[in-house]
Design a protein around this nucleic acid. Structure first.
Lengths: 132, 132
DNA sequence: TGACTAGTTTATAATGGTTCTAAATAGCTG
DNA sequence: CAGCTATTTAGAACCATTATAAACTAGTCA
């Protein structure tokens, strides 16, 4: 299995559950956005055995901490994640709560001119809200 | 009271509670960011009578709908609001969860080149996460 | 291979921000 | 003032997320 190495190299034990979640998250044609609930559903559809909700939360947070997932800042009661970890931005369709990737070429470079003493920039994220 | 007109013009009855919340939110030297909990505390400090939490939620949402407040997209378990309703962006200090305004001149113009059929852009928001 | 140990998984309970409910209250219009 | 509707309120309900603590498992070392 191709994810065993990846996990071990990150200091995460390659458990059956984590490997299965890797399949769902990363063994895809395209990257995608998801909430925990949507991921839970996807796992149910693709995996025979059950993975508990707590494990899904644990795993998603572990993967995020290792940089395999990104959280997307959106105002919603649910947390959105992205399997596309490259620097990029999002449209957020207010009507259905769906996100759409924006390529960097669609936005242009963003240059933050102001500095805050003792702090460094971890990320720059642009959210473009869409309405009808 | 200077907020009576403002409220009436928006179709909101100028109740005692709403006027008091207006004082806390808008009768200030500077604009500021807040969560509902922080606002609740501020109200307790400045107002003699009690305003119920439900009313605070109702009022904040009513004001947001009327455009007197903006929600700021941040990944947090709490919702952040801003009394500065002009177009501007934010630093988000991950350490303490505090927001800092970025002037538009600190960021430069953001030009979204991609269009989505049938949708128009409601807002463009940049969040710059800060770490140590 | 057989423990030993630390890391994981799991069901379930707990937490906490937010929303709902339904009854009491207060603006507004005539 | 009367009557109507909007608003306020305490408390319950909701629901995403986190904590708990017991069972399990991967990795290690003899």
């Amino acid at each position: 299995m191709k994810y065993i190495e990846k996990l071990r190299n990150s200091g995460l034990r390659p458990t059956k559950q984590r490997l299965q979640i890797c399949e769902v998250l990363f063994n895809t044609e395209r990257t995608f956005h998801f909430t925990i609930n949507e991921l839970e559903q996807k796992i149910k559809d693709k995996i025979d055995n059950k993975i508990s909700l707590a494990t899904i939360y644990n795993t998603v947070h572990a993967f995020e901490k290792k940089g395999y997932l990104k959280q997307i800042p959106v105002n919603s009661n649910q947390t959105y994640f992205d399997t596309n970890i490259t620097d990029h931005h999002h449209f957020y369709n207010l009507k259905d709560g769906k996100l759409i990737d924006l390529e960097n070429s669609d936005v242009g470079p963003i240059n933050i001119k102001r500095k805050i003493d003792g702090k460094k920039i971890k990320s720059i994220e642009v959210l473009v809200k869409l309405e009808d």
